[in-house]
Amino acid sequence: MTAELVLQILLTVAVALVGVGLFGALSQQSIVMVMMGLELVLNGVLLAGGAAWYFLAPELPDAQVLVVVALVVMAVEMAMGFAVTVAIYRARQVDMVDMATDLRG
């Protein structure tokens, strides 16, 4: 199996994770489940970044730094997501996205 084929298969797995995560983030009603969808999208970014580093540019650290940034984005998203969930639940007992439509256009 050539390395190019392995790279393409790995990137396909990564975009499958992105697709499943996008479906979850758009379709779930629970705020916590929406966050799980976003985490799955970032999981795909981790995989794609690692594959890009190994197969395309291992002499440069940029893809590794991108993976670090994606990990930090995951941590920030979790912390802020839970803080917002707790705050809106405390204020109005809202735990589903359909109950918080104040900004609907």
Binding site: L11, V15, L26, S27, Q29, S30, L56, V97
Partner: peptide, 30 residues
């Protein structure tokens, strides 16, 4: 507990197909 499941599935599958087509048609550097 889902809303708009069909459109969400279409968008998720659409994102996958667009990105996968790009992956399999790009001439990767050798």
């Amino acid at each position: 507990m889902v809303h708009n499941a069909k459109a969400s599935a279409v968008m998720g599958a659409g994102a996958f197909v667009v990105l996968a087509v790009g992956i399999w048609t790009i001439d990767w550097p050798t």
